[in-house]
Design a protein around this nucleic acid. Structure first.
Lengths: 225, 225
DNA sequence: GCCGTTCTCCGCCTCACGGGGGAGACGGGA
DNA sequence: TCCCGTCTCCCCCGTGAGGCGGAGAACGGC
Protein backbone atom coordinates (compact mmCIF):
# COMPACT_ATOMS: atom_id res chain seq x y z
CA UNK A 1 0.00 0.00 0.00
CA UNK A 2 2.02 2.93 -1.25
CA UNK A 3 1.53 6.58 -0.41
CA UNK A 4 -0.13 8.37 -3.32
CA UNK A 5 1.34 11.85 -3.79
CA UNK A 6 0.26 14.90 -5.81
CA UNK A 7 2.98 17.44 -6.58
CA UNK A 8 1.94 21.07 -7.01
CA UNK A 9 4.48 23.66 -8.19
CA UNK A 10 4.43 26.18 -10.98
CA UNK A 11 7.92 25.26 -12.12
CA UNK A 12 8.01 22.06 -14.14
CA UNK A 13 11.66 21.53 -13.29
CA UNK A 14 10.93 21.56 -9.58
CA UNK A 15 8.02 19.18 -10.04
CA UNK A 16 10.24 16.82 -12.01
CA UNK A 17 12.99 16.98 -9.40
CA UNK A 18 10.63 16.28 -6.54
CA UNK A 19 9.01 13.43 -8.42
CA UNK A 20 12.38 11.90 -9.15
CA UNK A 21 13.52 12.24 -5.54
CA UNK A 22 10.35 10.61 -4.25
CA UNK A 23 10.06 7.85 -6.82
CA UNK A 24 13.24 6.17 -5.62
CA UNK A 25 11.32 5.26 -2.48
CA UNK A 26 9.26 2.16 -3.11
CA UNK A 27 6.50 3.16 -0.74
CA UNK A 28 5.80 6.51 -2.40
CA UNK A 29 3.94 6.89 -5.68
CA UNK A 30 3.62 10.22 -7.52
CA UNK A 31 0.16 10.00 -9.08
CA UNK A 32 -0.14 13.48 -10.58
CA UNK A 33 1.35 16.94 -10.94
CA UNK A 34 -0.20 20.39 -11.10
CA UNK A 35 1.18 23.83 -11.96
CA UNK A 36 -1.44 26.14 -10.45
CA UNK A 37 -3.85 26.22 -7.55
CA UNK A 38 -6.81 25.57 -9.80
CA UNK A 39 -5.09 22.61 -11.42
CA UNK A 40 -4.29 21.34 -7.94
CA UNK A 41 -7.95 21.34 -6.98
CA UNK A 42 -8.89 19.56 -10.17
CA UNK A 43 -6.07 17.03 -9.91
CA UNK A 44 -6.76 16.27 -6.26
CA UNK A 45 -10.42 15.63 -6.98
CA UNK A 46 -9.58 13.25 -9.80
CA UNK A 47 -6.68 11.35 -8.24
CA UNK A 48 -7.62 11.57 -4.55
CA UNK A 49 -4.00 11.56 -3.30
CA UNK A 50 -2.97 10.78 0.28
CA UNK A 51 -0.49 13.63 0.43
CA UNK A 52 -0.17 16.85 -1.55
CA UNK A 53 3.18 18.59 -1.85
CA UNK A 54 2.10 22.19 -2.26
CA UNK A 55 4.08 25.23 -3.32
CA UNK A 56 2.79 28.62 -2.18
CA UNK A 57 3.63 31.11 -4.87
CA UNK A 58 1.78 30.10 -8.01
CA UNK A 59 -0.24 31.81 -10.76
CA UNK A 60 -4.05 31.67 -10.89
CA UNK A 61 -4.43 30.62 -7.27
CA UNK A 62 -1.78 30.41 -4.55
CA UNK A 63 -1.11 27.28 -2.57
CA UNK A 64 -2.70 28.47 0.64
CA UNK A 65 -6.02 29.22 -1.00
CA UNK A 66 -5.88 25.93 -2.86
CA UNK A 67 -5.08 24.11 0.37
CA UNK A 68 -8.11 25.38 2.26
CA UNK A 69 -10.40 24.74 -0.69
CA UNK A 70 -9.17 21.20 -1.20
CA UNK A 71 -9.40 20.37 2.50
CA UNK A 72 -12.83 21.92 2.80
CA UNK A 73 -14.20 19.95 -0.12
CA UNK A 74 -12.36 16.68 0.40
CA UNK A 75 -14.46 13.66 1.30
CA UNK A 76 -11.42 11.43 1.62
CA UNK A 77 -8.33 11.45 3.78
CA UNK A 78 -5.84 13.92 2.36
CA UNK A 79 -3.06 15.91 3.97
CA UNK A 80 -1.17 18.87 2.67
CA UNK A 81 2.55 19.40 3.00
CA UNK A 82 3.57 22.96 2.21
CA UNK A 83 6.93 23.09 0.47
CA UNK A 84 8.32 26.55 -0.05
CA UNK A 85 11.54 28.43 -0.61
CA UNK A 86 11.31 31.09 2.06
CA UNK A 87 9.74 31.08 5.46
CA UNK A 88 7.97 34.34 6.05
CA UNK A 89 5.82 34.30 9.15
CA UNK A 90 2.54 35.20 7.51
CA UNK A 91 2.76 32.26 5.19
CA UNK A 92 3.40 29.84 8.01
CA UNK A 93 0.49 30.93 10.13
CA UNK A 94 -1.85 31.19 7.17
CA UNK A 95 -0.79 27.75 6.05
CA UNK A 96 -1.48 26.26 9.45
CA UNK A 97 -4.85 27.94 9.54
CA UNK A 98 -5.56 26.65 6.06
CA UNK A 99 -5.12 23.20 7.52
CA UNK A 100 -1.68 22.19 6.27
CA UNK A 101 -0.08 19.31 8.14
CA UNK A 102 3.47 20.29 7.40
CA UNK A 103 5.56 23.25 6.40
CA UNK A 104 9.03 22.47 5.17
CA UNK A 105 11.61 24.44 3.23
CA UNK A 106 12.91 23.38 -0.15
CA UNK A 107 16.44 23.13 1.18
CA UNK A 108 15.43 19.93 2.97
CA UNK A 109 17.69 16.94 2.21
CA UNK A 110 16.17 14.49 -0.24
CA UNK A 111 15.91 11.62 2.23
CA UNK A 112 14.29 13.88 4.81
CA UNK A 113 11.58 14.79 2.33
CA UNK A 114 10.55 11.15 2.08
CA UNK A 115 10.49 10.98 5.88
CA UNK A 116 8.28 14.06 5.92
CA UNK A 117 5.87 12.57 3.40
CA UNK A 118 5.58 9.37 5.45
CA UNK A 119 5.11 11.30 8.67
CA UNK A 120 2.31 13.35 7.18
CA UNK A 121 0.70 10.29 5.60
CA UNK A 122 0.76 8.63 9.03
CA UNK A 123 -1.30 11.45 10.45
CA UNK A 124 1.58 13.31 12.00
CA UNK A 125 2.67 16.87 11.46
CA UNK A 126 6.02 18.39 10.81
CA UNK A 127 7.55 21.84 10.61
CA UNK A 128 10.92 23.12 9.50
CA UNK A 129 13.17 23.49 12.56
CA UNK A 130 13.40 27.26 12.29
CA UNK A 131 9.63 27.52 12.06
CA UNK A 132 9.12 25.17 14.97
CA UNK A 133 11.43 27.42 16.89
CA UNK A 134 9.30 30.47 16.20
CA UNK A 135 6.09 28.65 16.92
CA UNK A 136 7.46 27.45 20.21
CA UNK A 137 8.79 30.81 21.30
CA UNK A 138 5.53 32.40 20.27
CA UNK A 139 3.75 29.84 22.40
CA UNK A 140 6.21 29.90 25.27
CA UNK A 141 6.19 33.65 25.77
CA UNK A 142 2.55 33.35 26.72
CA UNK A 143 3.03 32.39 30.34
CA UNK A 144 6.53 33.60 30.89
CA UNK A 145 7.34 37.18 30.02
CA UNK A 146 4.22 38.98 28.95
CA UNK A 147 5.54 42.40 27.88
CA UNK A 148 4.92 45.02 30.54
CA UNK A 149 2.72 42.54 32.30
CA UNK A 150 5.59 40.40 33.52
CA UNK A 151 6.99 41.15 36.89
CA UNK A 152 3.73 42.69 37.98
CA UNK A 153 1.48 39.68 38.21
CA UNK A 154 3.27 38.46 41.29
CA UNK A 155 2.62 41.74 43.03
CA UNK A 156 -1.02 40.80 43.16
CA UNK A 157 -2.35 38.94 46.16
CA UNK A 158 -4.09 35.60 45.68
CA UNK A 159 -7.47 37.18 46.10
CA UNK A 160 -6.68 39.90 43.61
CA UNK A 161 -5.67 37.28 41.08
CA UNK A 162 -9.00 35.53 41.65
CA UNK A 163 -10.75 38.79 40.88
CA UNK A 164 -8.64 39.41 37.78
CA UNK A 165 -9.51 35.98 36.42
CA UNK A 166 -13.18 36.61 37.06
CA UNK A 167 -13.01 40.02 35.41
CA UNK A 168 -11.26 38.37 32.46
CA UNK A 169 -14.27 36.12 32.03
CA UNK A 170 -16.41 39.17 31.55
CA UNK A 171 -18.11 39.09 34.94
CA UNK A 172 -19.54 42.23 36.55
CA UNK A 173 -18.63 43.17 40.09
CA UNK A 174 -21.93 41.83 41.39
CA UNK A 175 -21.40 38.51 39.60
CA UNK A 176 -17.87 38.23 40.91
CA UNK A 177 -19.18 38.89 44.41
CA UNK A 178 -21.57 35.95 44.07
CA UNK A 179 -18.89 33.73 42.52
CA UNK A 180 -16.40 34.40 45.29
CA UNK A 181 -18.94 34.59 48.12
CA UNK A 182 -17.91 38.09 49.17
CA UNK A 183 -19.63 41.47 49.16
CA UNK A 184 -19.81 43.67 46.06
CA UNK A 185 -17.93 46.38 47.92
CA UNK A 186 -15.09 43.97 48.52
CA UNK A 187 -14.91 43.15 44.84
CA UNK A 188 -14.73 46.83 44.05
CA UNK A 189 -11.88 47.38 46.44
CA UNK A 190 -9.98 44.40 45.01
CA UNK A 191 -10.53 45.66 41.49
CA UNK A 192 -9.37 49.10 42.55
CA UNK A 193 -6.13 47.85 44.04
CA UNK A 194 -5.56 45.71 40.95
CA UNK A 195 -5.98 48.76 38.73
CA UNK A 196 -3.60 50.75 40.92
CA UNK A 197 -0.96 48.04 41.15
CA UNK A 198 -0.99 47.31 37.44
CA UNK A 199 -1.32 50.90 36.31
CA UNK A 200 -4.51 50.19 34.38
CA UNK A 201 -7.60 52.32 33.93
CA UNK A 202 -10.64 50.10 33.77
CA UNK A 203 -11.75 46.47 33.76
CA UNK A 204 -11.49 46.26 29.99
CA UNK A 205 -7.76 46.84 30.31
CA UNK A 206 -7.69 44.23 33.05
CA UNK A 207 -9.08 41.73 30.54
CA UNK A 208 -6.39 42.71 28.04
CA UNK A 209 -3.76 42.34 30.74
CA UNK A 210 -5.05 38.91 31.73
CA UNK A 211 -4.76 37.62 28.17
CA UNK A 212 -1.47 39.29 27.34
CA UNK A 213 0.19 38.13 30.54
CA UNK A 214 -1.06 34.59 30.13
CA UNK A 215 -3.08 34.70 33.32
CA UNK A 216 -5.90 33.42 31.15
CA UNK A 217 -5.62 31.93 27.71
CA UNK A 218 -7.88 31.98 24.70
CA UNK A 219 -9.85 28.74 24.79
CA UNK A 220 -9.93 28.59 28.55
CA UNK A 221 -13.56 29.53 28.71
CA UNK A 222 -16.63 30.46 26.78
CA UNK A 223 -18.38 33.76 26.25
CA UNK A 224 -21.98 34.49 25.44
CA UNK A 225 -23.08 31.14 26.85
CA UNK B 1 34.05 20.78 16.32
CA UNK B 2 31.78 18.10 17.68
CA UNK B 3 28.49 18.59 19.49
CA UNK B 4 28.96 18.06 23.23
CA UNK B 5 25.99 16.23 24.73
CA UNK B 6 24.84 15.59 28.29
CA UNK B 7 22.46 12.65 28.79
CA UNK B 8 19.99 12.85 31.68
CA UNK B 9 17.84 9.82 32.55
CA UNK B 10 17.23 7.97 35.78
CA UNK B 11 17.69 4.58 34.13
CA UNK B 12 21.34 3.73 33.58
CA UNK B 13 20.41 1.30 30.80
CA UNK B 14 18.65 4.01 28.84
CA UNK B 15 21.57 6.37 29.33
CA UNK B 16 23.93 3.73 28.07
CA UNK B 17 21.77 2.97 25.07
CA UNK B 18 21.45 6.60 24.09
CA UNK B 19 25.17 7.16 24.51
CA UNK B 20 25.92 4.16 22.33
CA UNK B 21 23.50 5.27 19.64
CA UNK B 22 24.96 8.76 19.56
CA UNK B 23 28.61 7.83 19.80
CA UNK B 24 28.57 6.13 16.39
CA UNK B 25 28.16 9.58 14.90
CA UNK B 26 31.54 11.25 14.61
CA UNK B 27 30.19 14.75 15.14
CA UNK B 28 28.51 14.00 18.47
CA UNK B 29 30.36 13.56 21.75
CA UNK B 30 28.70 12.41 24.96
CA UNK B 31 30.55 14.35 27.66
CA UNK B 32 28.55 13.36 30.72
CA UNK B 33 25.54 11.54 32.13
CA UNK B 34 23.19 12.32 34.99
CA UNK B 35 20.50 10.32 36.78
CA UNK B 36 18.47 13.06 38.50
CA UNK B 37 17.54 16.67 37.96
CA UNK B 38 19.97 17.84 40.60
CA UNK B 39 22.78 15.86 39.03
CA UNK B 40 21.82 17.34 35.68
CA UNK B 41 22.24 20.86 37.00
CA UNK B 42 25.59 19.99 38.52
CA UNK B 43 26.83 18.15 35.43
CA UNK B 44 25.73 20.89 33.04
CA UNK B 45 27.53 23.49 35.09
CA UNK B 46 30.72 21.47 35.07
CA UNK B 47 30.74 20.23 31.48
CA UNK B 48 28.88 23.07 29.76
CA UNK B 49 27.35 20.85 27.05
CA UNK B 50 25.84 22.17 23.80
CA UNK B 51 22.82 19.92 24.00
CA UNK B 52 21.13 18.16 26.92
CA UNK B 53 19.02 15.06 26.33
CA UNK B 54 16.57 15.33 29.20
CA UNK B 55 14.13 12.76 30.55
CA UNK B 56 11.11 14.09 32.42
CA UNK B 57 10.27 11.57 35.10
CA UNK B 58 13.18 11.39 37.49
CA UNK B 59 13.71 11.27 41.26
CA UNK B 60 14.85 14.30 43.28
CA UNK B 61 13.94 16.79 40.58
CA UNK B 62 12.05 16.23 37.35
CA UNK B 63 13.39 17.17 33.96
CA UNK B 64 11.15 20.18 33.45
CA UNK B 65 12.23 21.85 36.66
CA UNK B 66 15.85 21.03 35.90
CA UNK B 67 15.45 22.45 32.39
CA UNK B 68 14.21 25.82 33.51
CA UNK B 69 16.82 26.07 36.23
CA UNK B 70 19.66 25.18 33.91
CA UNK B 71 18.50 27.58 31.20
CA UNK B 72 17.94 30.37 33.70
CA UNK B 73 21.42 30.03 35.16
CA UNK B 74 23.34 29.18 32.01
CA UNK B 75 25.88 31.74 30.83
CA UNK B 76 26.77 29.73 27.77
CA UNK B 77 24.85 28.45 24.77
CA UNK B 78 22.95 25.33 25.76
CA UNK B 79 19.79 23.78 24.40
CA UNK B 80 17.56 21.15 25.90
CA UNK B 81 16.00 18.27 24.05
CA UNK B 82 13.25 16.60 26.03
CA UNK B 83 13.20 12.86 25.44
CA UNK B 84 10.32 11.02 26.99
CA UNK B 85 8.24 7.88 26.71
CA UNK B 86 4.73 9.28 26.64
CA UNK B 87 3.39 12.52 25.31
CA UNK B 88 0.87 13.95 27.74
CA UNK B 89 -0.15 17.48 26.86
CA UNK B 90 0.79 19.10 30.11
CA UNK B 91 4.33 17.94 29.83
CA UNK B 92 4.69 19.29 26.32
CA UNK B 93 3.44 22.75 27.12
CA UNK B 94 5.33 22.92 30.38
CA UNK B 95 8.46 21.80 28.58
CA UNK B 96 8.09 24.48 25.94
CA UNK B 97 7.52 27.09 28.62
CA UNK B 98 10.55 25.80 30.47
CA UNK B 99 12.51 26.66 27.36
CA UNK B 100 13.11 23.26 25.77
CA UNK B 101 14.07 23.36 22.11
CA UNK B 102 12.78 19.94 21.27
CA UNK B 103 10.35 17.35 22.50
CA UNK B 104 10.75 13.90 20.99
CA UNK B 105 9.50 10.48 21.98
CA UNK B 106 11.76 7.61 22.85
CA UNK B 107 10.39 5.54 19.99
CA UNK B 108 12.32 7.74 17.59
CA UNK B 109 14.59 5.80 15.19
CA UNK B 110 18.25 5.91 16.14
CA UNK B 111 19.38 7.85 13.10
CA UNK B 112 16.61 10.41 13.59
CA UNK B 113 17.83 11.08 17.10
CA UNK B 114 21.20 12.19 15.74
CA UNK B 115 19.37 14.44 13.27
CA UNK B 116 17.40 15.89 16.15
CA UNK B 117 20.53 16.59 18.17
CA UNK B 118 22.15 18.33 15.21
CA UNK B 119 19.02 20.37 14.52
CA UNK B 120 18.85 21.54 18.10
CA UNK B 121 22.55 22.30 18.22
CA UNK B 122 22.11 24.38 15.06
CA UNK B 123 19.60 26.56 16.86
CA UNK B 124 16.54 24.92 15.38
CA UNK B 125 13.64 23.32 17.17
CA UNK B 126 11.90 20.04 16.69
CA UNK B 127 8.82 18.30 17.97
CA UNK B 128 7.51 14.78 17.63
CA UNK B 129 5.05 14.65 14.71
CA UNK B 130 2.05 13.89 16.91
CA UNK B 131 2.90 16.79 19.18
CA UNK B 132 3.44 19.14 16.26
CA UNK B 133 0.01 18.10 15.13
CA UNK B 134 -1.57 19.09 18.41
CA UNK B 135 0.36 22.33 18.61
CA UNK B 136 -0.76 23.22 15.12
CA UNK B 137 -4.39 22.38 15.69
CA UNK B 138 -4.29 24.26 18.95
CA UNK B 139 -2.91 27.19 17.07
CA UNK B 140 -5.16 26.84 14.05
CA UNK B 141 -8.41 26.69 16.00
CA UNK B 142 -7.73 30.20 17.24
CA UNK B 143 -8.91 32.03 14.20
CA UNK B 144 -11.36 29.50 12.89
CA UNK B 145 -14.04 28.31 15.25
CA UNK B 146 -14.03 30.40 18.39
CA UNK B 147 -16.78 28.75 20.51
CA UNK B 148 -19.95 30.83 20.52
CA UNK B 149 -17.98 33.63 18.97
CA UNK B 150 -17.69 31.98 15.58
CA UNK B 151 -20.41 32.70 13.11
CA UNK B 152 -21.01 36.04 14.73
CA UNK B 153 -17.89 37.91 13.84
CA UNK B 154 -18.98 38.15 10.23
CA UNK B 155 -22.20 39.80 11.23
CA UNK B 156 -20.18 42.82 12.24
CA UNK B 157 -19.53 45.55 9.70
CA UNK B 158 -15.95 46.57 8.89
CA UNK B 159 -16.25 49.65 11.03
CA UNK B 160 -17.64 47.69 13.94
CA UNK B 161 -14.72 45.30 13.73
CA UNK B 162 -12.37 48.29 13.84
CA UNK B 163 -14.06 49.40 17.02
CA UNK B 164 -13.92 45.93 18.54
CA UNK B 165 -10.19 45.71 17.89
CA UNK B 166 -9.69 49.13 19.45
CA UNK B 167 -11.78 48.15 22.47
CA UNK B 168 -9.71 44.99 22.74
CA UNK B 169 -6.61 47.10 23.08
CA UNK B 170 -8.12 48.70 26.14
CA UNK B 171 -8.99 52.02 24.56
CA UNK B 172 -11.78 54.22 25.92
CA UNK B 173 -14.47 55.57 23.63
CA UNK B 174 -12.76 58.96 23.45
CA UNK B 175 -9.44 57.35 22.54
CA UNK B 176 -11.06 55.21 19.89
CA UNK B 177 -12.69 58.32 18.46
CA UNK B 178 -9.27 59.94 18.10
CA UNK B 179 -7.74 56.76 16.69
CA UNK B 180 -10.41 56.37 14.04
CA UNK B 181 -10.91 60.08 13.35
CA UNK B 182 -14.62 60.04 14.17
CA UNK B 183 -16.76 61.57 16.89
CA UNK B 184 -17.12 60.01 20.35
CA UNK B 185 -20.85 59.68 19.78
CA UNK B 186 -20.18 57.58 16.70
CA UNK B 187 -17.94 55.29 18.67
CA UNK B 188 -20.67 54.86 21.24
CA UNK B 189 -23.21 53.90 18.62
CA UNK B 190 -20.79 51.40 17.05
CA UNK B 191 -20.04 49.90 20.44
CA UNK B 192 -23.75 49.69 21.16
CA UNK B 193 -24.53 47.83 17.96
CA UNK B 194 -21.61 45.50 18.61
CA UNK B 195 -22.97 44.72 22.06
CA UNK B 196 -26.43 44.10 20.61
CA UNK B 197 -25.24 41.95 17.71
CA UNK B 198 -22.98 39.82 19.87
CA UNK B 199 -25.29 39.61 22.84
CA UNK B 200 -22.69 41.06 25.19
CA UNK B 201 -23.09 43.39 28.13
CA UNK B 202 -20.11 45.69 28.31
CA UNK B 203 -16.76 46.46 26.73
CA UNK B 204 -14.97 44.05 29.06
CA UNK B 205 -16.94 41.22 27.49
CA UNK B 206 -16.06 42.63 24.09
CA UNK B 207 -12.41 42.22 24.97
CA UNK B 208 -13.04 38.62 26.02
CA UNK B 209 -14.90 38.03 22.78
CA UNK B 210 -12.08 39.51 20.72
CA UNK B 211 -9.52 37.18 22.25
CA UNK B 212 -11.69 34.08 22.27
CA UNK B 213 -12.77 34.53 18.67
CA UNK B 214 -9.25 35.18 17.51
CA UNK B 215 -10.05 38.68 16.31
CA UNK B 216 -7.04 39.69 18.31
CA UNK B 217 -4.35 37.44 19.66
CA UNK B 218 -2.21 37.53 22.75
CA UNK B 219 1.07 39.11 21.74
CA UNK B 220 -0.52 41.32 19.11
CA UNK B 221 -0.06 44.40 21.20
CA UNK B 222 1.16 45.84 24.43
CA UNK B 223 -0.63 47.07 27.51
CA UNK B 224 0.44 49.57 30.08
CA UNK B 225 2.82 51.17 27.59
C1' DG C 1 3.23 43.46 72.50
C1' DC C 2 3.47 45.93 68.08
C1' DC C 3 3.50 46.30 63.16
C1' DG C 4 2.68 45.10 58.31
C1' DT C 5 -0.12 42.64 55.07
C1' DT C 6 -4.23 40.82 53.50
C1' DC C 7 -9.08 40.32 53.24
C1' DT C 8 -13.27 42.01 54.33
C1' DC C 9 -16.63 45.85 54.17
C1' DC C 10 -18.70 50.72 54.40
C1' DG C 11 -19.79 55.37 52.59
C1' DC C 12 -19.62 59.32 49.07
C1' DC C 13 -18.68 61.33 44.79
C1' DT C 14 -17.95 61.67 39.82
C1' DC C 15 -18.33 60.17 35.32
C1' DA C 16 -17.77 57.16 31.48
C1' DC C 17 -20.58 53.84 29.82
C1' DG C 18 -24.52 51.91 27.74
C1' DG C 19 -29.81 51.94 26.54
C1' DG C 20 -33.31 54.23 23.87
C1' DG C 21 -34.53 56.84 20.28
C1' DG C 22 -33.87 59.79 16.37
C1' DA C 23 -31.68 61.82 12.12
C1' DG C 24 -29.09 62.99 7.87
C1' DA C 25 -25.98 61.24 4.08
C1' DC C 26 -24.34 57.90 1.04
C1' DG C 27 -24.56 53.88 -1.86
C1' DG C 28 -26.21 49.60 -3.75
C1' DG C 29 -29.98 46.65 -5.01
C1' DA C 30 -34.88 45.63 -6.07
C1' DT D 1 -37.85 55.16 -7.74
C1' DC D 2 -37.77 53.55 -3.14
C1' DC D 3 -35.74 50.81 0.33
C1' DC D 4 -32.14 49.08 3.12
C1' DG D 5 -27.67 48.88 5.26
C1' DT D 6 -23.88 51.51 6.80
C1' DC D 7 -21.63 55.35 8.82
C1' DT D 8 -21.96 59.45 10.90
C1' DC D 9 -23.78 62.24 14.75
C1' DC D 10 -27.13 64.13 18.33
C1' DC D 11 -30.17 64.09 22.70
C1' DC D 12 -31.63 62.32 27.46
C1' DC D 13 -31.13 59.39 31.30
C1' DG D 14 -30.01 55.65 34.59
C1' DT D 15 -26.46 53.02 36.48
C1' DG D 16 -22.34 50.51 37.02
C1' DA D 17 -17.72 51.53 37.66
C1' DG D 18 -13.82 53.52 39.79
C1' DG D 19 -11.34 57.08 43.02
C1' DC D 20 -10.89 58.31 47.77
C1' DG D 21 -10.97 57.61 52.49
C1' DG D 22 -11.84 54.87 56.40
C1' DA D 23 -12.26 50.65 59.41
C1' DG D 24 -12.25 46.12 61.70
C1' DA D 25 -10.38 41.32 61.88
C1' DA D 26 -7.10 37.71 61.12
C1' DC D 27 -2.42 36.30 60.54
C1' DG D 28 2.49 36.17 60.92
C1' DG D 29 6.99 38.26 61.91
C1' DC D 30 10.02 41.12 64.80
Amino acid sequence: MSIRVLIVDDQALVRGGLAMVLRVHGDIEVVAEAGTGLEAIEASRRHRPDVILMDIRMPEMDGLEATSRILAAADWDVRVLILTTFDPDEYVYEALRAGASAFVLKDIPADQLAVAVRTVADGGALLAPSITRRLISRFAERRTVGPVAAGRVERLTDRERDVVVAVARGSSNAEIARELFIGPATVKSHVSSVLTKLGLRDRAQVVVFAYESGLVEAGDHDIGS
